[in-house]
Amino acid sequence: MSRRVRMWILAVGGLGFAALFAAACLRLPGFGGDSHPYGERAVRAALAHRTANVIAAVNFDQRAFDTLGEESILFAAVLGTVVLLRQTREEREVPPEPARVPLLVRRYALVLLPVAIVVGLYVVAHGQLSPGGGFQGGVVLATALHLLYIGADYHALERVRPVGVYEFGDAAGEGAYLVLGLAGFVAGSSFLANSVIGHGTFNTLASGGTVPLLNMAVGMEVACAVVVLLARFLDQAVEIEEEKGT
């Protein structure tokens, strides 16, 4: 395709988008008005299922199917990265030299590691009550593990991080979400319906029905996925070198 044709296609697409976007903007309801039809319905549905954090109710109850899609995107993205960054035949593994880390940083990382893990678990477990949830907590958990790389060196991290286990955890988290969705069928309603277990008492840890369970599945998937992703990046940046003459 020549440059000129591409520009024409870009212009047509851009003009079409501009026209549609302008038309959509003209029909928007006024900013900051009193009427919030979607918000009111979402809050009512969240309270009916005793979920204090309405955002969690939208993500994991009312639109749980969308979240399944998002979770699968992360799963597929990590899978793709693992395939792309694998050690090829022309590359060899060179053990990195042990790092000299200041004592202060070493101690800080050692003290912060358990604190960060508790914070991560707290964020996952309180997704239905306060801001947070599986994704945010999972990322905190995965970052916490990499304090070992910051506080010591790559060798120390590798000893407590069997990548195979985390790959399994990644898949298990993704599978658990699907199983919880199918449990909705078994309970007699639809896929991912929040009717499998009781909704509990409002504003307690065990409220929201399947919302905390789905949060746990996502938390496990995200934490393991990020660990696997970073393992590939660290391998490539720290250990793997290309053979000479390639």
């Binding site: 960060a116 914070v119 009550l129 801001p131 947070g132 945010q136 905190v140 970052t143």
Partner: peptide
């Protein structure tokens, strides 16, 4: 509940 934001940042920011 917004204190959680500060908590997560206090843990991860220095890292």
């Amino acid at each position: 509940a917004y204190t959680d934001l500060a908590l997560v940042l206090a843990v991860l920011g220095p890292v």
